[in-house]
Design a protein around this nucleic acid. Structure first.
Lengths: 67, 67
DNA sequence: ATTATATGTAAATTATTTTTTACATCAAGT
DNA sequence: ACTTGATGTAAAAAATAATTTACATATAAT
């Protein structure tokens, strides 16, 4: 139960309905990792957070929200 | 060997010579975690990254650098 | 001289993140 | 009817992050 929320799913749909697998491939992780992040099962490592933000062309703070 | 560098040590000295322990306490981790991050032994979790940035009053991107 | 604070290093353990594998349902297209 | 792609769920294993503990050196202050 992480204290960090995120807009990954929203951003994924905004990004031309990008699929979980497409995002996973773009980021370089497995689909399970994307699912876990979207479902807030845990929050990602800083490296994965950077990569996700990069794929969506925004800053970490625009994707992930602390508190 | 993380592909992320950081300015934690620099920011710590800029912040009135804040000690490793003072930063660790402010962030809510142990001194070993701060040491590991400063020495680039590994990069922190997203949560710890957010807290460190918060302590220094800046964004994650001003503390941590991807690539 | 001794106390206190800051830093350095190291190693074992615990906790968390990520991968791997597997199978399920649903909808769209052929 | 069948195939394909997208999503959902689950659980074990592997990888990485973080804690705990311990001891070392150095410097500054009393």
């Amino acid at each position: 139960m992480p204290s960090i929320t995120n807009h990954v799913r929203r951003l994924r749909f905004d990004a031309n309905e990008m699929s979980q697998k497409a995002l996973a491939d773009a980021v370089g992780v497995t689909r399970q990792t994307i699912i876990a992040i979207e479902k807030n099962k845990y929050s990602p490592s800083l490296e994965v957070a950077f990569k996700i933000a990069q794929v969506f062309g925004c800053s970490i703070e625009e994707v992930f929200f602390y508190q």
